[in-house]
Amino acid sequence: MNINEVRKIAKEKMKGYCRVCPVCNGVACAGEVPGMGGSLTGSAFKSNIEDLNKVKVRLKTIHEAKEPNLDFNFFDIKLDAPIISAPITGTEFNMGGALSEDEYIDSVVNGSLTAGTIAMIGDSAVPELYDSGIDALRKVHGKGVAIIKPKKNEVVIEALRKAENINAIAAGMDIDGAGLVTMALKGTPVGPKTVEELKEIISSTNLPFILKGIMTKEEALLAVEVGAKAIVVSNHGGRVLDHAQSTAKVLPEIAEAVKGKIMILVDGGIRTGVDVFKMIALGADGILIGRPIVIGAFGGYREGVSLTIQDMRNQLLQTMILTGAKDLTSINKSMISIEW
C-alpha cells in the first residue's frame, strides 16, 4: 500500500463528508460543520493553509548536516519525529461512519506507534467515545495523551482520573472547543475557563497538562501561570471561529513570549514535512496533524496512519538536509523567509 492508494480508498469511504481534495485547503468544504470543513465561510481553515504557504524555505547545501537527527523529547519519551496525531472523535457525526469509533481510534493509536510517535485521543459530547480512547491507550500501556473538552470542572477531573489510571503520558484540554457546534447539538455544556478554574483542574492531576487552543501571547503566558506544561497553538482546524487568525501567523509572537518556559506545539494546515519544518522555524517545538491522519485511517487503517506519518517524516528529513539543520533545535527563523 502507498499514499496514493490510501487517499483513493479514503475518498470513496468518506464520500459526502470529505472530498479528499488534491490540496486540503478548506475551499471545497467551507461551512461544512458537521463534516470536515471550516466554520461558516471557512476563512480560518483557509487562512491556516494560505499563511503557511507564505513562509518560504531557504535552500542551503554547503554544510555538515548530512544525517539530521529528528528525535523529539516529549515529556521524557523519545519520539522518532516531532509529529503527533491530533485528538479527533466523531467518525459517524463528522466523517460518515465508514469506520466505527473503535476502528478509528485503534488505527490512529497503533499506526502512530508503528511510525515511532504517539497519538492524542479526544473527547466529545458522548462519554463513551472518550472511554473508547482511554481503552485504546490502556491496550498500549498508556503510550498516548488524553485530551478533554472544556466541560464542567468535575467532569474534566473525573476524565483526568481515567487518564491517570492507565498511566497516560500526559493529559489536557482543547479549550478552543468552548464553542463547538457539534457539542451544542448534542446537548453537552462546554465553555471558556477562568484562571482559577484551570488552576483547580491542573492541580488535581499528577500528569503533565496540555492546553490546546492557545492563539495569543497573553493566553500563552496565562498557560504558564496556571501550571500547564505544554500548549497547542490551535484554532481547532478553523472549525470554531470564522475569520480567526491562522496558527502560523500567531506562532512567532507566542514563541517569543513563552519559548523555553513551556513546550509549544502547533496544528493547523500542516500537510507535509516541509510544513512541519516551517512551523518549527516559526517557534514550535513539535506539531500535531489532524485531517491527514483521518484520511490515513479511512484509507488504510493502522497502515494508512503509519504511512502518512512516515511520509511526512521523510519529507522533514529531506528539508533538514537541504537547509543545513542537523537536529530539531537547529531549525530557526534564519532558514525561512516570511512573505506577509
Rank of each mutant, 00 (worst) to 15 (best):
P22I: 03
G273F: 10
A171F: 12
G260T: 00
I309T: 02
R19G: 05
E303S: 13
T182W: 00
S337R: 07
A230Y: 00
S306F: 10
L207F: 08
V181K: 09
A325C: 06
K261G: 09
G16Q: 10
A136P: 02
L40E: 07
L307A: 13
L40G: 00
T182D: 08
E154V: 13
A44Y: 08
I309W: 13
L160F: 14
D327A: 03
M335E: 01
S337E: 12
T89N: 13
G133C: 06
N25K: 15
G179V: 10
K162V: 08
A86V: 03
M36C: 14
K78Y: 13
A81R: 15
N94Q: 13
G179H: 10
D131E: 05
I62D: 00
H243R: 07
M95T: 07
N167V: 10
K13Y: 08
I289L: 07
V224Q: 04
K143R: 11
N110S: 07
K326V: 12
A163I: 09
T319Y: 04
V258Y: 14
P82Y: 13
A28Q: 11
A30V: 05
S334D: 10
I293L: 09
P87F: 04
M95Q: 14
S100W: 11
R302M: 12
P150Y: 01
E219R: 09
Q245G: 02
K13C: 04
G227R: 02
V250E: 01
T89W: 05
A220G: 08
P208L: 03
L241I: 14
N235G: 01
V305A: 15
K11L: 07
